[in-house]
Design a protein around this nucleic acid. Structure first.
Lengths: 209, 209
DNA sequence: CTTTCATATTGACACTGTCTATATTGACTT
DNA sequence: AAGTCAATATAGACAGTGTCAATATGAAAG
């Protein structure tokens, strides 16, 4: 085997990513310093350099992994609901699962979620990030295209709009923008209400065909 | 006079904020370091401490100012359109102006816009930030309440949804999420198309009353 | 057993924010 | 007009950061 326990430390790369994630579960990405991660993994401050050329590379790898996690969450959610109802879900229900998976993830792991979109810390051009991120987005576009009539409205615009709404809500929540009176119904219930708006909108579009 | 030219430097506080903004127009907020701002203003690296206890305070003051700028933009936009048509705008048009002002600002000054929502760098609890930010948001809520029927849908949720969409689009654009095929119609035209969706949605809501 | 080379360590450098002690200087008091 | 005071600016230091270079370690290959 090539990846188990062999060298000085034994798969330090994985250990570093795990340490980084553990920090990210407690604090802001600012706390994920090379030195802190190294210390937590029990190695010297320069050891990570052998596996990640710089901090950006470490955080990029972490984000890539998490994008994949989100995609798996969506897939699992759809599978679960499908086997429940013993029938294929219609596009609106599948979009609802996407929406729900995303919001659940974001509300449960705010710092992980934030990392995903820190373009100053994560390289979104690199393939290991692009691919899993695309898979999620493409899924949304695919479902929207099934629902929407091209002659009535541009499916791309609808996709961008829904994705924006989803992300915007999570991002703004973390700034505290929606706290206090603004979010009397906060967190998941609010998200459900937002989903209803999307549902209504899409349903209306469908019936206009 | 108390604020013109008097002390060692002469209203260094203003000069520092101007320097910071100039940097922010060229690069990420990461480039807005205390030392860089000080150098640009022609003072020593510790001089800013007399006016801002720490970097957070400087960035908070900057964000506060910019929130006010955005609000003024909206107000000016509405005034302009009102004097054009020589009649009061209906709520949908006023929301359109809000939408447009925000997106124009965000697309023109991406780094300024991003600073507004960096809760790790800006104190959103402090009054100088809260007040101008609230004024913008309250404006949106006020107009939505005029359009929406409380029995059909919760106006708060609609406000949160629209605000989220607006912010989410700008934020995601900067990560590159909507580049390439995803945003063939990019920037302002895409924003216009999104606004259309909002318009349609709100209009339908209105006609259901 | 020796060589080899990926991996890990130590130490250094430039940069950051922030603290302390010191110097400057405009404005007010007498 | 002279002298005091308080606000403002400076210089230097410190701990922390990412990253680079030189060195050490040790598992696997010959």
């Amino acid at each position: 085997m090539a990846k188990s326990k062999s060298f000085h430390h034994g798969d330090l790369k994985r250990a570093l990513m795990r340490s980084a994630l553990e920090i990210l579960d407690k604090e802001d990405v600012a706390g994920v310093t090379i030195r802190a991660v190294a210390k937590r993994a029990g190695v010297s401050h320069a050891a990570p350099a052998n596996h990640f050329p710089d901090r950006r590379a470490l955080l990029t790898a972490l984000a890539a992994e998490q994008f994949a996690v989100v995609f798996d969450k969506i897939r699992a959610g759809i599978d679960a609901k499908t086997s429940d109802t013993r029938a294929d879900l219609d596009p609106l229900d599948r979009i609802a699962v996407l929406f729900d998976s995303f919001l659940t993830y974001g509300l449960e792991y705010p710092y992980r979620y934030q990392l995903l979109w820190r373009y100053d810390l994560v390289d979104h051009e690199v393939e290991i990030v692009k691919q899993p991120a695309d898979r999620v987005y493409d899924f949304l576009v695919g479902e929207i295209e099934k629902v929407v009539d091209r002659n009535t409205v541009d499916p791309d615009t609808v996709s961008v709009t829904i994705w924006s709404m989803m992300h915007g809500y999570l991002d703004l929540r973390m700034t505290g923008m929606f706290e206090d009176r603004r979010d009397r119904i906060s967190g998941a219930p609010r998200a459900q209400a937002m989903l209803m708006i999307v549902r209504d909108y899409l349903h209306d579009l469908g019936s206009r065909v």
